[in-house]
């Protein structure tokens, strides 16, 4: 039944490997940048708040595929040389997903009482020490279910990188399909793999949500 898949399994799994690499890079970069973007969104310094807010609002109202395209075609003009599709995709994903992660972090920071931050300052901790040891870890834990949900969305979104010719999972499947002409089984296989990963992810998210509620962190 999956004979076309079986014949090309290494080629397809190689594509899935690229998808995973892209997801991991996008998540590590997107969450790290998002934690900072969230801090910018609650900053009382208008020179930080307004530019960050503009960046967030602009990208959140933009389709991702446009950002990927735009970045891929504009960057060579700025950088003076063509970027490889993987690097271009990673950077586009990080700056795009950071706006979504940033809003999740912002909600997390806003759930932390003003006095808790004051308590940290009153022991002599600086702003960056307070952010690093208090605000970011607490927001990360409280928002873990939402962060996992957004991570699943990011994982699904990576397939859009096929538009700039990146040979990720979906792109490679369509290459195989052009030769084998077994669309239903090939894309059915892709669907099953995505489903298993995403469903597992959402179960993990549920688990952390329950755990957080029990510990009184949410």
């Amino acid at each position: 039944m999956f004979n076309a898949v079986a014949r090309n399994i290494y080629f397809l799994l190689g594509g899935f490997g690229v998808t995973l690499q892209l997801t991991i890079c996008a998540l590590v970069g997107g969450i790290a940048l998002g934690a900072l973007v969230g801090l910018g969104r609650i900053s009382r310094n208008k020179w930080i708040y307004h530019p960050i807010t503009l960046y967030v609002n602009f990208l959140r109202n933009m389709p991702l595929i446009l950002v990927i395209f735009w970045f891929y075609f504009v960057m060579p003009i700025i950088a003076g040389r063509p970027l490889n599709p993987f690097l271009s995709a990673v950077i586009s994903f990080i700056i795009f997903e950071a706006t979504y992660f940033g809003e999740i972090f912002r909600a997390g920071y806003q759930s932390i009482s003003k006095d808790l931050t004051s308590a940290a300052y009153s022991t002599g901790l600086t702003y960056s020490q307070t952010a690093r040891h208090i605000l970011i870890p607490i927001a990360f834990r409280r928002m873990l279910p939402s962060l996992i949900t957004q991570s699943i969305v990011t994982f699904q979104d990576t397939s859009l990188a096929f538009v700039i010719g990146l040979q990720e999972f979906v792109r490679r499947t369509s290459i195989v399909d052009n030769l084998e002409v077994r669309s239903i089984q090939l894309f059915g296989f892709v669907a099953i793999v995505f489903f298993i990963f995403c469903f597992t992810g959402s179960k993990i998210s549920r688990y952390f949500e329950e755990k957080g509620r029990k510990l009184g962190m949410i």
């Binding site: 006095d115 808790l116 308590a119 009153s122 002599g124």
Partner: peptide, 20 residues
Amino acid sequence: LYKLRENIGMVFQRFELYPH
């Protein structure tokens, strides 16, 4: 101010311990 606060401890109504 960071330096100054090292010398002034403060205790709050709702404790404000770091929950994590």
